[in-house]
Simulated assay, not measured.
Amino acid sequence: MTDIRNNWTHEEVKEIYNLPLLDLVNRASNIHRKYHDSSKMNMNTLISVRTGACSQDCKYCAQSARYNTHVKPEKLSLEQVIEDAKVAKANGVKRVCLSSAGRDGNRDDRFNEMAEMITEVKKLGLEVCCTMGMINKEKAKKLADLGITAVNHNLDTSERHYPSITTTRTYAERLETLANLQEAGISYCSGGILGMGEDDEDRIEMLRTLANQDQHPYNVPLNSLVPVEGTPFYGKDVIDIFEMVRAVATARILMPKTVVAFAAGRTHYSREGQALCFLAGANSIFFGDKLLTVGNVEVNEDQALLETLGMQSTKYHELTTLEN
């Protein structure tokens, strides 16, 4: 049976997900080494060009205007974005992601603002990715014409559990955006957040939905919920590291060629726990002291861990994982 499939059943994914953990990790690790250099780790960060003041009610997100959190609305000028991109390039970064909070990337003013930033950053000789909410067919084609490298749009969780996460948009709208990006020939990044009250069936179904897209995501970010004070999910217990490992390993088996990112929430876990996720197939991490609005691992800590494990980092400015 070929490793690359787009027709997984729920029962097939469930059988993989529920394997004894060490057997699951071993299977995932072998597939990872078949398709990737296990000594390499993609190091990612981002530029948040528009932060906060989002009209949506996603219960995990500190950027929602509906919640009283530490996040203050902020918008970067084109000049600031270009300057940040120049600094990133000087530090060896090859790809910049521009993140804009909000639901509707189809609004002409928001889209044109992002299009100008994409164009100017590309002039620096950098690849550009973005995340900007919902995208229709027309705007997806325009992004493709601009030469966008990839677009992020997360599913967050399963369709069944989604109404417990947000009520201001539907799962069908999420899937429509992914379909529009694929139709336009754009590589896309899509994943989810663990620890939002979902059960194993929800995690299984989210991963199955991603793996059954016509084209697998080029990147699947898996996040551990960071409960932010002021959001409805503040106070939720952090999920156990072995739950993260199980999700990472399952994603690797279902989508062998995909980059699997262990994204937000890594500060919850020990170096040993993170290393187990790497063994299970995670080959992308986010560095910097902040990931959008939450604390993250310092780059020197990551470099020390990778050196201990005998791994090398590959720098990118990459896709956001916590919103849109």
Rank of each mutant, 00 (worst) to 15 (best):
A280V: 08
R266L: 06
G281C: 00
R266F: 00
F287T: 14
G265E: 06
A282L: 11
A261T: 15
A280P: 09
F262Q: 14
E272T: 12
L276M: 15
V260Y: 12
A261E: 08
S270H: 06
G273D: 15
G288K: 06
A280T: 10
C277Y: 02
T267V: 12
E272D: 15
Y269R: 06
A280E: 08
G281V: 05
T267Y: 10
S270Q: 07
S284T: 14
A264E: 05
A261N: 12
A263R: 04
R271C: 06
I285E: 05
R271H: 10
A261R: 15
L276D: 04
H268E: 09
L279H: 05
L276Y: 11
S270P: 05
F286D: 02
G265P: 00
T267A: 10
K290T: 13
A261L: 05
G288C: 03
R266H: 13
F278H: 15
A264S: 11
T267I: 13
G288F: 03
G281I: 09
S270M: 08
A264H: 00
N283V: 10
G281S: 03
R271F: 06
G273L: 02
G265S: 14
I285C: 10
H268F: 04
I285F: 11
A263Q: 08
N283I: 11
E272C: 06
S284A: 14
Q274H: 12
N283Y: 07
Q274A: 02
G265T: 07
T267L: 11
L279Q: 13
A264G: 14
G265K: 01
Q274D: 08
A280C: 03
Y269C: 06
A264I: 01
A261Y: 05
A282G: 12
V260M: 11
G265A: 00
L279F: 14
K290H: 10
D289C: 09
G273A: 13
R271K: 15
F286A: 11
S284Y: 11
R266V: 04
S270F: 04
A280M: 00
Q274C: 07
L276R: 13
